[in-house]
Every structure is written in C-alpha cells, then in structure tokens.
Design a protein around this nucleic acid. Structure first.
Lengths: 333, 333
DNA sequence: AATCCAATTGTAAGCGCTTTCATTAAATAT
DNA sequence: ATATTTAATGAAAGCGCTTACAATTGGATT
C-alpha cells in the first residue's frame, strides 16, 4: 500500500503538504499541488481513511440502527438519508436492532466503538432514559419515528395522531358513521397514536366510539383479514374500516371479498403509510401518506447541521401525514 | 475518552495485556483478565475500533454497493447478509451506485479508502473488466446478481434463464399455447435472460415464439399496464401472459381488468421475483421465487469463508428460482 | 536596503491501538 | 534441586495520517 510518505518523497515535499492537498485544507501553491497530484496518480495512491480518522478524531461516518432491513419501509427512509449524506461525502454504517433491547444496545455500542460521528436511530426496545442518557453523554444522535420530550430536538417523528385523525375524518366527510378500526399492535406507540387520532375524529364529529368495532392486529396483512372476520362475527354493522397500515388494509380487502363484499361499494377501506404497493392494488388503496423518505432526509439534515455544521438545511421535527385519495373509499350507499 | 493506557495503569498491567483481554488473543491469566475487565468497567472504557483497525490493518467492515436503497429488493438482500455478518461481528458500510458508472466507481473507491476488508457489489453500470481488474489487484469482492466468467468464483447469481423457463413451462403445462411476454428492460441482463428462458420453453414445447406477442417494458408496474394495452391493440389473441417481474404483472392485471378481462379466467398472469406483495394481490400472484435473501446470505458466507477464513459455510454460486403457485394462473377455457 | 507580513512549507508530536520480541514466572521433567 | 518447557507479561516499534508550531520564502512597504 502506498502511503502519504512515499507520495511526498516522489513529489519532493513534506507529508504535511500532501495531506493538505488531499484534504484541501491550509494553503498550498498551485504548482506544488499539481506536483503532488501527479505523484499520487503515478504511484496509484489511495487515501487511508482509517488512519485519517484516527488522527483527526472524525470518521465522516454515520451509524444507522433500524429494526430490520427487509420490507420497503426502512429502505425508503435510509434512501432519503443516504442521498443527503452522499452529497456531503459522509457514509453510513448500518446495523439492525430487531426490536430487541439487548441487540439494540449492542449495536449502538458497536457503532460508538467505531467512532461514528453521529447516530440515526430507529429503535423500539431501548428505553427513553437510555437515549436521554446517551445524549447527555454528548453522543450526537437523532431518534426517528419516536418522540422523547426531554430530547425533543433530537427527535424526528410523524404525527401519527393526525394521520389517524385524517383517515377517520375522510370517512366521516364522505358520509360514513359506522366505522370500524383495525388497529396495529397497541404496545407500539404508532399503533396507539393512530387509534387515538381515529377516536378524536369520531369525537369531534359527535359519533360514539364503539370498542366492539375495534380489533387489535399486529400490522401484518394476515391480522387485517382476521380482524375483518372477527368484526363481522361480532355482528355490528359497519360501512367503512380504517386500518392501522396498508398491509392490514390489504388483508382486510381480501377478507371482505372472500365474504362477498365489494370494496368500496359495500365497505370502504382506508390504509396508512402509502407503501409502494398501495397504488398497485385494485382498486388503488386510499391511504395516509407516511413521508418516510422525507424523514430520512430530515435525519441527514439534522446531522449535517448539528454535527458537521454544514450550512442550514431545511428541517422540521414533526412531519405531517396527508390523505391520498384512491379508489377504496366512497360514500355509503 | 479513556484509552487502553489508562486502563492498563489502573489495572497495573501493560497496555499489551489490556489489548489481549479485549481481543481475547494470546494467553492471559484469569486473575489478570478480571483485573483488567474491572478497570475497564470502572473507567467506562470504550474500545476504539478505528485505532485498532489502523494497527491491525483489518476493519471487520464489509462495503456494500447497491443501486438503490428503496424498494423491497435490496433490503431483503442486505438483510440476509447482515444476519450472517452480525453473528461474526462484522459490520456493513452501505453505499448506492444508482446504476451510474461514475457513481459506482466513486463509491467503490470510497469503500476501499475506508479499508473495507471485502466488498459486496450489486453494480450495473461498471464494466466486467473493471471488476476483473479489481479482483486481480487483490481486492476481495463478491459480485451479486451478475455473472462474469473470468471471476466466476466471485459471483453469486440467480439463474434467470431457468426462471423464465419455469414460468413459461408452467403456463404450457396447464394448457396455454398463446402466451404473451411482458419483458423488462432488455439492456439489462436480467431482462434478457428471463426472456431467453421463456423462448427456450416455448421451443422445447414446439411452439413458435411470436415477436408480436412480446412487449418491452422497464420492470415498472406502469409499463406492465401499457404492455397489455399495446398487446391487445396489436390484435393477436393470447390466453396467458408471462411478466418480467411482479410489478409489471401487477400493472398488467390492473389493465386487464380495466378492459373487462378476468384473471385468471380470461387471461392467466405469472410474475417473477415473488415480492412480498405478490401474495397480497387478489387473487394471489403466481410467480417465480427469487431467493434474494438467500443470495445476500451467500454473499456473507463467501466473505466469511474467503476473507476471514471462518469455517466452511454452506455456499453456492448459482441460486435456483422456483415456481410459486397462487391464483392468477389456470387452464384456458 | 531594511523591515514586516502573509503565504507556503516543513518538523515532529501525537491519535489509540496491535504485535513482535524479549523477559520473567510458573510448571514439568530429570 | 536443577534444567527445560511453557505460560504470562512487558517494552517498544510501528500503523498512516493530521495538525499545532516553527521556519522559510517572497513580495510589499517605508
């Protein structure tokens, strides 16, 4: 491996000067710069970022922890981050936490050991206090899809309550009054908040929230289908069903059809997240857009601003969901 | 930041010994080990992997280049890799190439500068020669979803020809003879090979391949719908359509329905890839399973074996696709 | 021509670890 | 008890870079 030293000798300058032209820091005469560049090319020099990181105490690396890599959600988020970071020549070290406290902590610790300049965390099992503590220790981190008031400046999240509200509100607006709800896992903040918004919308419309029209699933398509069957079995009529996410909505649509009910003529369905496939369903799924990519971008901007002090990027802590109208909702007959 | 030196002083040993207990190398008496561990905990020591990497000339980091982060494909692949690597305590540095030659090269170069021990590359724009050259320079890398005969040991790919064959074969088996094909981009190897397999199956069944029943799309859902419309406009009848991937199949299904044709009663549809959503469609999409995750796992195994010499993992260079029967195909009426 | 200042460049001290080699302690053999 | 191995440790030389700080250079100033 050719080193900076060899380049400096070939170019007849000191290694400090070579370092200067590599990093474009300090002042170096154009003539010497060219000399150095030529020497680097001739020798096939490749900068050793590890050594540079050790010396400068900066890695230009952002650690990223997400629950899983599969599925389209986290890819979209990381994609937003990557795009913004790439322009700033930062790189991402990615790890998965599997929604397990021990694993999440291990991964965070590993990323810190690798001296990441900052962390972007989508963690679910670790406690608020643990994260607050990290911040207090001086760890630069941004928590996505989670709100912790003590470190609110470090958080970027979606307003899930508003999303739930928007969905129910749409159903109400087009005339539904008997609205079922297929909830996600209610031990997860997202699951709870979306339902909270739903209830609020009903309340604002003076419609009584009926627990027997609610079914708790787990965000998977299958639980959406099961939910519909359970709801129907309970015997309470409903003309529309709001779902905690698109997967569940998809499962619900299938179950409804199996029972001979048409969507949206007999039952309107609305999802949440607006995953890629929502538009591929027939009819296209009406849903609430979760701007995942935007959240990923925001996280990158936070890091660029706060950690690297690179100008002021567009930035917001709470991202707004919005209604995407497609074909699975219509006024009740 | 507390260093190994401080720990060694607190524990009353040399820094070499501390390094030994951290890395579990060499021999160290149980008693001193405990002493060191205690000192580390008391001081809140955090290993500096950057310094360790520089000294040992090993980063325990694998560089990963994929075209994009969004979508469910690469996430699934990286997920397979990550799972296998995590157990071996290796980490992944992820970069995107955007199917652009310059970007791909820049990213590879950046990962090499960061001294990744190995690279896993899903690159599309860079030439075979470029990759061959890297391997000859001694760069440890595995190319996924691409086959280059000169460095075949470094490649892991799916047998796309066989996949295309399997799909057409299924359609033939259940009695179809007028089979349309919605191709992906034909400047991509995957697009070509899947079509090649398709043609071969027809040939083996003594059925003439008719170019007017083929439409070249671009792997997107929209182009699937457009393809159906174009095919129908051409006036040649067909009772089944094989698609280059599930997205296109989904688009095709929607277009067929819009034209009043039922799937599979009027037209059978088969996809390719078996993305998550294939099973959510109604009816479930019959398709060819692309074992992406498995490919990701294989890539990890290659690295673990060849680069870190960690035992012998299960390993294969060409992964086999297989037919997934669901509801979009049936015998012609 | 002497002086001063800013622009360039060089010197050298780390950054925090790993690892070879030498040394010492402990264990086993004679 | 002494010689011989073997296990456990320490000393110290890097790994390849960055970055104060010092030194030099080359005008510009007076």
């Amino acid at each position: 491996m050719v080193t900076i030293k060899q380049v400096s000798e070939k170019a007849g300058v000191s290694s400090a000067t070579v370092s200067r032209v590599i990093n474009d820091t300090g002042t170096v005469k154009e003539k010497t710069r060219k000399l150095v560049v030529a020497a680097m090319e001739e020798l096939g020099y490749r900068h050793n970022v590890v050594a540079a990181s050790l010396a400068s105490n900066k890695t230009n690396t952002i650690g990223y922890v997400v629950p899983e890599l599969h599925g389209s959600f986290f890819g979209a988020m990381m994609g937003g981050t990557e795009q913004a970071l790439r322009e700033a020549r930062k790189h991402m070290l990615i790890a998965t936490g599997h929604s397990d406290e021990t694993i999440e902590k291990t991964q965070i610790e590993a990323l810190l050991s690798r001296r990441c300049d900052a962390l972007i965390l989508h963690v679910e099992a670790v406690s608020d206090d643990y994260l607050i503590n990290l911040v207090q220790q001086g760890v630069k981190l941004v928590v996505v899809n989670r709100y912790i008031s003590d470190i609110d400046d470090n958080c970027i999240s979606l307003d899930n309550v508003k999303g739930g509200y928007l969905a129910a509100r749409h159903l109400l607006d087009i005339g539904h009054t008997e609205i079922a709800y297929l909830a996600g896992s209610l031990f997860k903040a997202d699951g709870i908040n979306r339902l909270v918004g739903h209830k609020q919308a009903l309340k604002d419309a003076d419609i009584n929230y009926d627990d027997s029209l609610m079914y708790e699933g787990n965000f998977q398509a299958k639980s959406g289908a099961e939910g519909i069957r359970a709801l129907v079995a309970r015997g309470k009529p409903f003309s529309a069903v709001a779902c905690a996410n698109d997967e569940m909505a998809s499962g619900a649509m299938n179950a409804l059809r199996e029972m001979g009910k048409r969507v949206p003529e007999d039952v309107s369905v609305i999802g949440f997240d607006n995953i890629d496939f929502a538009s591929y369903l027939t009819p296209g799924l009406t849903t609430i857009d979760y701007p995942v990519k935007q959240i990923g971008t925001m996280a990158a901007h936070w890091v660029l601003d706060r950690v690297y002090g690179k100008g002021s990027h567009e930035f917001t802590h709470v991202v707004d969901p919005r209604l995407i109208l497609r074909g699975t909702t219509s006024s009740p007959e």
